[in-house]
Amino acid sequence: MTDEEINWPETLRAQDSGQQAAAVDALRGVLLNGLRIALNNRPEVSEAQLEDFAQDALLRVLDRLDQFQGRSRFTTWAQAIALNTAFAELRRKRWRDVSLDALLTAGDQMAEPAILPDDVLGGDEDRTRLVNALRRAIAEELTPKQRAAILGELQEMPFNQITALLGTSRNAGYKLLHDARRALKNRLLEAGITGTDIQSAFTL
C-alpha cells in the first residue's frame, strides 16, 4: 500500500490495537528514514540520536493528529514536525551555556558606537547616516528584551533558545522581534531613510 493509499490519521486512531500499533511503527519508520536523509550531512548526529528524534517527533505528531487538515500529504506534514523537533534539539545543545544575563547585557551594548561603528557598512555618507539612525533607533525605541532578542538572532542563536532565556513562548518571542523590527523600520522612515536607502546598504 502506498503512502497516498493509507489514511494515516484514521489508521493511527484505529480501535483495533494491532492495526494502530502497526501504523505507529510504520510512521516511526517513515520519520526515521526522513531524518536520516535530512541530516546525512551531519556526521556528528548518531543513529541513536536520530531514533530519539524520531520517537519524540512521533509523540508530537500523534498529539497533534487533530490539527492535520489534509492540505498536504500526511507524511510531509509529519516530516515537517519531525524536522522541527530534531533541529530544535540540535540547536539547543549548541547554545545551552548562554545565560539570560549575558544576553541582556550584550543586547544593551548594541546601541554603543563600538558595537555599531559608523563605517561598519563602509565609509559612504549614506551608509553612515543609516548606521547612525539605526543606533539611535536601537537605543531609543527598543526594550532590553527586544535588543537582546535581535542580537541573539544576528548571532544565529536558536530562536527557541532566545525565547527560553527570555521566558516567552515561541510565538510571543516572534511578536517581540516583529514589534522591534517594525519600530526600527518606522524610526528609519521618520528619519528620512527610504526603502531604497536600505536596499543600497546591502551592496557591501
Binding site: Q155, I198, A201
Partner: peptide
C-alpha cells in the same frame, strides 16, 4: 559566536538592515 562580547560585523549589520 557567544553574545557575551558582541561586536557586530558588517554582514550582521547588513542582516539587521
Amino acid at each position: 559566536m557567544k553574545p557575551q562580547n558582541p561586536s557586530l560585523t558588517a554582514p550582521q549589520v547588513k542582516g539587521l538592515v
